[in-house]
């Protein structure tokens, strides 16, 4: 009990004094996850929308595969990307292993199916309501996809934040492809794992508190933005 309260106050100290190690780890975490989510959005939003609207043979199977990919085990993704990026691997020449770029790739691979699958669900529900009206107005598949992406924008913000939460909280894949190198590829989750195993509880706890705060804070923010926007836009 005493250990914990001591660690907590030390953690609070680190946060309040904006400890440079702590801050740089947090900054790297946010940067990596943000870029990963941007990539996931660039691929997942249009892919999800098209999958919801276009009709082609094999579509149902594709939806099932996509839903299954939401549950990709991070360590396995990490391992596969490690093999791809390692010096002997097919993409080894780029020297990306143990860099933040490798971590971005790993998180993007994990989050893209999530964004695409959730987007597909949101857009498909909207399409059910809008289909006849949009077809009557002469909208093709592409027009309809863009229209619905915009019309469901508040729901999609929540989708992207769910993706960001998943990316930022993930540890297995970034540990493997990033290597948790101090000052280079150490992010919140890998640092927490390392410091805990070393027994440096204040830093681990401080990072844990910040990570929780970011994830919860972002979701609260999303909730309020969505609520306010929906009250205004209906």
């Amino acid at each position: 009990m005493n250990d914990i309260s001591q660690a907590l106050s030390a953690a609070a100290q680190l946060i309040v004094s904006a400890d440079t190690t702590l801050v740089s780890i947090i900054a790297l975490s946010i940067k990596v996850s943000l870029v990963a989510v941007l990539i996931a959005a660039a691929i997942g939003l249009p892919a999800g929308a098209l999958l919801a609207i276009a009709r082609f043979p094999g579509r149902q199977a594709l939806v099932a595969v996509l839903n299954a990919l939401m549950g990709l085990p991070p360590v396995v993704v990490g391992l596969l990307i490690y093999l791809l990026l390692s010096r002997a691997g097919p993409l080894g020449e780029f020297g990306l292993l143990f860099t933040p770029a490798a971590m971005v790739v790993a998180q993007a691979v994990l989050v893209t199916p999530i964004v695409a699958a959730l987007t597909r669900q949101v857009i498909e529900d909207a399409w059910f309501e809008y289909e006849e009206q949009l077809r009557s107005l002469g909208a093709g598949t592409m027009d309809a996809a863009l229209t619905l992406l915009w019309d469901t924008r508040f729901a999609l913000v929540t989708v992207l934040l769910a993706g960001f939460g998943r990316a930022a909280a993930e540890v297995g894949a970034v540990m493997i492809v990033g290597g948790n190198i101090d000052g280079v590829t150490r992010v919140m989750t890998t640092a927490i794992a390392l410091e805990t195993s070393k027994g440096d509880l204040p830093l681990a706890l401080g990072l844990g508190v910040v990570l929780l705060g970011i994830v919860i804070g972002l979701n609260l923010l999303a909730h309020w933005v969505k609520l306010g926007a929906q009250r205004y836009h209906g």
Partner: peptide, 14 residues
């Protein structure tokens, strides 16, 4: 050349 007003009109979120 055709347009339709539906029994339950759908308007866009704009």
């Amino acid at each position: 050349a055709q347009a339709m007003v539906f029994q339950r009109p759908i308007v866009l979120r704009r």
